[in-house]
Design a protein around this nucleic acid. Structure first.
Lengths: 140, 140
DNA sequence: ACATATGTAATCACTCTAGTTACTTATACG
DNA sequence: CGTATAAGTAACTAGAGTGATTACATATGT
């Protein structure tokens, strides 16, 4: 959803876009989009203004925003969930399995993000434009 | 949790282990462990028997089981969730954003699994034994 | 001032998951 | 043969998490 929103903003090439229009493309509620935009603002990926005729736009060119940055902006927690209950620390395996797996999972997450870094918003937009016949159609 | 269970089985070096004992180490219910073991059986990672004195054991040596196999055995769906509602297909971005992102996410998942492949159960057990002072302590 | 658009809280509905209980089936052992 | 043990499995409950929605305050441009 975050990539979708940013792709629309990239498609609009710097124009201010309201949360209502973005919500129309994602097919959700404007409030959901605004909550997402707050995270993207914190990550300095978008700039948002209030008032008539305002809205959001990218703070950088699409070629300088990669998917790993988007991932980090919206996915605060780790992809590997740890069980709610702690393992039995009286068991030698339970005692240190978490610490052991944390390192493994951290490495896997780095590998994941390195792969996401290879794709930029410009790449995504390119695929979109190729699929839609390179037209400057209406968005929303 | 799957890694934890398999680590205990590896620690027991081929002995049959009951779901109740595994549940004690993971600190959960034996039924949860049995449900997990069903998935691990389907992936041919463990062998399970019924009856008194029976239980589960690894079907291969720990050095020949890597974390990517475990991941695939228990994580059936993709790590990147797609929104419940479909994007607005009247929008050029919404029309093809899903297909575009599917490729990106598939690539990221491959990168993730490639990293997990580098770690085997033997690696995990090695870390566990190093942390617990190489002792043959009681498990459970 | 007024219309527009964001920021944000409160709430509801739905889903997912872990947990639990209970029962059936299969195996080993005396 | 019968009893104990342990897996397979269904049904139900509880809680967390998420999306959606409504409502309202705040800020901004005309």
């Amino acid at each position: 959803m975050a990539v979708h929103v940013l792709a629309v903003l990239a498609y609009k090439e710097g124009d201010r876009v309201s949360s209502a229009l973005l919500a129309g493309s994602v097919n959700t509620n404007p409030v959901m989009v605004r909550r997402l935009l707050l995270a993207l603002q914190r990550a300095k990926l978008v700039e948002t203004g209030k008032g008539a005729g305002s809205g959001s736009r990218l703070s950088r060119s699409p070629g300088r925003i990669n998917l790993a940055e988007i991932y980090r902006a919206v996915e605060d927690c780790e992809p590997f969930a740890t069980p709610a209950r702690k393992p039995n620390s009286a068991c030698p395996v339970g005692y240190c399995i978490r610490a052991t797996l944390e390192k493994v999972f951290a490495s896997a997450q780095v590998a994941l993000e390195r792969d996401l870094e290879k794709t930029t918003l410009a790449t995504v937009i390119g695929a979109v434009q190729a699929a839609s016949g390179c037209g400057g159609k209406k968005v929303g």
